[in-house]
Amino acid sequence: MSKVFDIFKRDVLSSTRNTLAIYMIIVPIILAVVIALSAQGLNDTAVKVAMLEDDTPEHIEFMRKYAKVELFNSVNELERRIMKRDEIAGLLPKGDGYEIIVQGNEPEMIEVYTKTLSALYELGVSKEDSRSEIYNFNRHVPPVKKMLVIMLISITIMLAGMLISFGIVEEKTENTINAINVTPVSQNGFIIGKSALGGTAAMASIVISIIITGFYDINWLMIILVGVSSLILSVLIGFLQGLNSKDVMEASTGVKVLLLPIAGSIAGYELLADKWQWTMYWSPFYWAYKANDMILSKTADWPTVLLCTGLVLVISLTAYLVMMPKIRKGLS
C-alpha cells in the first residue's frame, strides 16, 4: 500500500515537471472560473420577470406561478433593473396587451419563455390546462450553467485519462516499467499507483469546480460516487492509449476519442425526445450526465443515483474485462 503511494508521489513529482500535465490539471479550474464569471445570471434556474406593482393582481399571480416575479413602482425603476447584469425580462402593459423588454444580452429562451407565459395568460388558458404544458416547456429549457458544469465534469474525467496516459507513456518510453517489474511491487499495485494521480486530480478538480461555480449545497457523496465510477472507463482508456503511444501528444490525441461519446451523450440527453432517450443507454457518460444533472438540480434521490452509478459500473466493467488483458500484457 505504501508502495502504491510512492508510485503516486513519483507521478506527482514528474508531472510538476511536465508542462502539458500541469496544464491538464489547471485547465478545468480555469474553465470553472470562466463559467462562474460569465454565467452569473444563470445561477437561478427560474426565469426572472420584472413587472409593475399596479399590474392586475391576476396577472401578477399567474406569472408568479411560473417565474420569479420582481415588482417595481415605476417604469424607470423597472428599466434600471433590466439593465443589471443578470437575466431578467420586463413585462409592461402596452395598449391592449403587453410588451416584453430585455437588455439584449439574455439568452433567447428567457424572452421566449416570458412571451409564452404572457400569451398563455392573454389566451386565458386555465391553470390546469397550462400547467402540464408549461411544465414540459420548462423541462426542455437547458439551465445553461448547470449544463456547462456537468460538461466540465465530463471533460475533467477525460483529462484524468490523459494524465494517466502521460504517466504510462513516460514509463514505456524510458523503459522504466522493466525496472519496476524487477521489484517486489505487484502489477496491481503498479496499476493502482499509476491511476492515483489522474483519479485524485480529477476528483479534486471536480470538487473545486463545483464550489467555484456555486453549487455547494448539493449532495457531495452522490457527486463523488458518480465521479469515481465514471473515472473507471477513462482510466482504462488512459492506460491503453499510454501503452500504444510513442509520446504524450499521441497519447492525448488517443484519449481525446472519448470526447465523441461524451459530447454525444450530453447532446442526446439534452436534445433527444423522451421516446428516443433509450438510444443513449449504452453510454456510461449518459448515465453519469443524467445523475450529475439531477444532483446539481438537487432533485436526485438515492435509488436513481445508485441505478445510474450501477449502470456506469456495469458498462465500465465490461470495458474492463475487454481491455484489462491487453493492459496487463502491455505492462509486462
Binding site: 513519483r10 513529482l13 511536465n18 513516460e170 524510458e174 523503459n175 522504466t176 522493466n178 525496472a179
Partner: peptide
C-alpha cells in the same frame, strides 16, 4: 539493464 532506464524528469 543493457539499455539504461531511468526517469529523465527525476
Amino acid at each position: 539493464f543493457e539499455q539504461s532506464n531511468v526517469y529523465s524528469k527525476l
